[in-house]
């Protein structure tokens, strides 16, 4: 079955030299775009979350400051965690749809249907 031109669903990648693919500029570009987004954003939200935790843990007076009505700084910062979580989620999805998915599927299509890449090359 390895020689059939049409790959079966259970054996879609018979003989791919992954090291070669990994070394291509196209893949390296995708890898860089992925990491340059997810690493900084992950570090940023973790720092922001632990800043909030430390304030709630050790800065009781600051967090208890009333802003309007009975709503205090602590409640607003807590709700701020919800806002940033929703915002980062939306931001990542839009980034992945625009910048990551097209490149990823181009590479995937080329690897799973080698005939296309030969026509392209």
């Amino acid at each position: 079955m390895g020689t059939s031109a049409q790959p079966t669903p259970h054996d879609p990648v018979p003989e791919i030299d992954f090291e070669e693919v990994q070394a291509t500029a196209e893949f390296q570009h995708l890898r860089r775009k992925h990491r340059s987004f997810v690493f900084p954003v992950a570090i940023a939200f973790l720092l922001w979350y632990f800043l909030y935790v430390l304030l709630a843990d050790y800065a009781h007076d600051f967090m208890s400051t009333k802003v309007f009505g009975s709503i205090n700084v602590g409640l607003l910062l807590g709700l701020g965690q919800f806002v940033t979580t929703f915002a980062i989620t939306t931001w990542y999805v839009s980034y992945a749809n625009r910048k990551l998915d097209p490149d990823a599927s181009a590479i995937r299509r080329r690897l799973e249907e080698p005939s296309l890449s030969q026509e392209g090359a």
Binding site: E19, V21, F27
Partner: peptide, 20 residues
């Protein structure tokens, strides 16, 4: 095995050969 690492990295980012 560097080939396995390459395969995992390429598959993880592109979905090549992922279970359908």
């Amino acid at each position: 095995d560097p080939a396995k690492q390459a395969e995992m990295e390429v598959r993880s980012l592109t979905g090549v050969g992922a279970e359908k």
